[in-house]
Nucleic acid binder design. Structure first.
Length: 720
DNA sequence: ACTCTTGGAGTTTTT
DNA sequence: CTCCAAGAGT
């Protein structure tokens, strides 16, 4: 692509940001100010000018999905295929570095990455063993403390007591220390470790740091306001010499301080890189002036912010609409009704989003959408790789790759039940503690006769040995297939269609991984999975988008609903007392508002039913922060015209209705169909009420149950 | 010794 | 709904 194309249509500030490819830069990019455009064009420009080569750039984004999009946009702009290059999250970048440097810090290349559940289980186990229950602290709370310590580059010895003789502190230090030891024994790293250990490695081994500095003389860090101290330090280490680092952020969109993010990194950057060019992007290209005014008005209630004024030249639009309902059910129905009506006017389903503060709120909304036959997708609710059956299968694969992985062993040894109980498992793990792997531990225990269930342990050992052999020889896909077959999980879950489907999906994921990265092995596949968020699902949107406000960051929609505008829920009661945390809730609201291009629809329920309990809530204080002239309060329904047309005019040409599955009449049993992932199949059963009919489909190698409406199935019998 | 069933309790946000 | 702990059953 020619230079004038890369630079075309940029405003003054954007142009300066794009063309300043050398030296440090702080890009303060307001919501909707064309940030992604600037970042991608900047890299494309540098490539085109010959300032740097693609393999000299390390770009860090917040999610894998954002990374994927950035790769694609740069590739399109620059005629360079950027897909092989380093656009990663902090975590995946560190995992990749540590894999390559494994010998230098005495870890195997194929280490395991512990997720939150592995971590919590480990802490529970430690608490049990040490007998010490940390005074009124749940394992999750302890884990949180440990994670925050890691984010701040504090090891067990670096924790400071709050006062002399702080029991909490001593116990926490002890648990943290054992926790780290156990991770090492298991040849595992957790999320915090990935960053912490990389920083430590760079600190301790100058020549390795030097190598990576030389490798990446150009850095870019996106969502900089959400970086923690460890990440900041890593950036500094890498950028110290070249000083070619561009950080991009917006202090008003900092919403992850509970995860260790430190907003002061923006100030630190100005100190550490005093020669940095500072550019503000304040023109908003996304939202109407009305939406922007609402957002500005709300965020102006925060004290801790760098002042910044967004403005928009877009056409005027409507103000916000606020709806109060009796309960959550009514709220959900109003949202569904509003969506229906908007869809009949001018807005397509994928251009609509519904945001909420907590995941459980999605359930009621989903039910109403389903009833009204409105297609939707939920982003990030139950993470695929955290589902029980998926973790079960992953446990076997993890052990095949890393036979020291104690958490995987716990799971693999007990699901499906094979007669190895807690006691035997503990014995085997003890055996493995002295630097032995778990397979060897099994072997030795059998040889010594120190164990009761000799036969079953022997069976498990052989199974693991077999999987280990397979992963060396076979493709990732075959290794997963072998795991499914040999683990006994397929039989174990034979009755549960959903779980079987998930196992097959993991197999399919392995297949596509193998296609994308033919040179990578099972270990890399497992690492990749551990770092994958649900956000990254790439299937194109066909329905309304449902997600938490946290997941909404970086996205935009024509129409945005924000549900549950109630005290106690939003701001959440756990964050409402402290000023700093309340301000973060407000920023979360700000993020939500600024996702909207045209319309903003808010709602609150005075009664909410959640898990056997009814709570009564006042409307959120944030509502009072919206200028009155820009917030119209309604009762009953969102739109002024609840039922304009009783019936739609009937279309008499059949071709018009065949194209979209909107009007799909439903399949017959015995009908031949095709699915984009599973291929051809036959409907074996069709059940349930018409609106939410389920179909059972037999494919060549498996059988799946779908909700008919969203199944992506196409008939093979209606073709001309 | 191990597994399965039952009842009770807890649920912010997530790489 | 889903995770735990405790007790009964094999």
């Amino acid at each position: 692509m020619r230079q004038e194309d890369i630079l075309e249509g940029l405003n003054k500030q954007q142009l300066e940001a794009v063309t300043s490819t050398e030296g440090p830069m702080l890009l303060l990019a307001g919501a909707g100010s064309g940030k992604t455009r600037v970042i991608t064009h900047r890299i494309a420009y540098g490539l085109q000018q010959g300032t740097f080569r693609a393999d000299q750039v390390l770009a860090v984004t917040f999610t894998n999905k954002a990374a994927g999009e950035m790769r694609e946009r740069i590739s399109n702009l620059s005629r360079v295929d950027f897909n092989r290059h380093w656009v990663k999250t902090f975590h995946s970048a560190c995992a990749a570095i540590l894999r390559r440097e494994a010998p230098a810090f005495n870890y195997p290349r194929d280490f395991t990455i512990y997720d939150t559940r592995d971590q919590t289980a480990l802490i529970k186990d430690i608490l049990k063993k040490t007998g010490g229950s940390l005074a009124n602290s749940t394992p999750a709370a302890i884990l949180n403390k440990i994670s925050r310590a890691q984010d701040s580059l504090l090891g067990p010895g670096d924790l400071k007591p709050r006062f002399d003789g702080d029991m909490q502190h001593e116990q926490l230090t002890a648990v943290y220390r054992i926790y780290q030891e156990r991770l090492q024994e298991a040849k595992a790293l957790d999320f915090g470790d990935l960053i912490f250990q990389t920083v430590r490695l760079f600190e301790e081994q100058e020549e390795i740091l030097e190598k990576w500095r030389t490798r990446f003389p150009y850095l870019l860090i996106d969502e900089f306001q959400d970086t923690n101290k460890a990440q900041y330090t890593l950036m500094k280490q890498l950028a110290k010499k070249s000083r070619n680092v561009c950080v991009v952020g917006d202090d008003d969109q900092s919403i992850y301080s509970w995860r260790g993010a430190d907003i002061h990194n923006i100030r630190s950057f100005q100190k550490d890189f005093q020669e940095a060019k500072i550019i503000r992007l304040e023109q908003n290209y996304r939202s109407t002036p009305q939406i922007l005014e609402i957002a500005s008005s709300v965020i102006s209630n925060n004290n801790e912010r760098m002042s910044k004024t967004l403005w928009s030249q877009l056409e005027k639009g409507p103000g916000a609409v606020y709806l109060e309902t009796e309960d959550d059910r009514e709220e959900a129905e109003a949202i569904a009704g509003g969506i229906r009506e908007l869809a009949e006017q001018d807005t397509a389903f994928p251009d609509i989003a519904v945001f909420y503060r907590t995941n459980f709120q999605s359930r009621t909304i989903e039910e109403c959408l389903m009833q009204r036959e409105i297609p939707y997708r939920v982003i990030g609710s139950v993470r695929f790789y955290e589902r029980k059956e998926v973790k079960d299968l992953l446990a076997y694969l993890r052990l095949a790759v890393n036979p020291y992985d104690a958490q995987a062993f716990e799971r693999a040894a007990s699901v499906p039940p094979r007669g190895i109980g807690a006691r035997t498992r503990a014995l085997l793990r003890e055996k493995a503690a002295a630097g032995r792997d778990l397979i060897t531990a099994c072997e030795q225990s059998i040889a010594e006769g120190s164990i009761k269930g000799k036969r079953t342990v022997s069976g498990l050992k052989n199974l693991l040995l077999c999987l280990r052999a397979v992963q060396d020889a076979a493709s990732v896909k075959d290794a997963v297939a072998r795991g499914m077959e040999k683990s006994g999980l397929m039989q174990h879950y034979a009755e549960e269609e959903q779980r079987l489907g998930d196992l097959h999906e993991l197999h399919a994921a392995a297949d596509s991984f193998a296609a994308d990265s033919p040179d990578e092995g099972l270990g890399e596949f497992l690492n990749r999975i551990a770092l994958l968020g649900e956000m990254d699902k790439t299937d194109s949107a066909t329905g309304v988008n449902l997600m938490t406000l946290h997941n909404a960051k970086g996205l935009e929609f024509d129409t945005v609903f924000i549900a549950g505008m109630e005290e106690g829920l939003f701001p959440h009661y756990l964050s409402a007392d402290e000023q700093r945390r309340l301000e973060e809730e407000r920023r979360l609201f700000y993020v939500g508002i600024t996702r909207a291009k045209q319309r903003l629809l808010l709602s609150a329920a005075s009664r909410r039913f959640s898990f056997g309990r009814t709570s009564y809530n006042e409307p959120s204080r944030f509502l009072n922060e919206i200028p009155e002239s820009l917030c119209e309060k309604r009762g009953g329904a969102f739109l002024r015209t609840p039922r304009l047309r009783a019936a739609k005019p009937h279309k008499n040409t059949p071709e018009a209705t065949v194209t979209e599955d909107q009007s799909s009449p439903g399949f017959r049993e015995g009908e031949r169909v095709s699915h984009p992932r599973y291929g051809e199949g036959v409907i074996t059963r069709r059940t349930g009420p018409e609106v939410v009919a389920r179909v059972q489909v037999a494919f060549r190698e498996r059988s799946c149950l779908f909700l008919e409406r969203y199944s992506n199935l196409t008939s093979l019998e209606k073709e001309e």
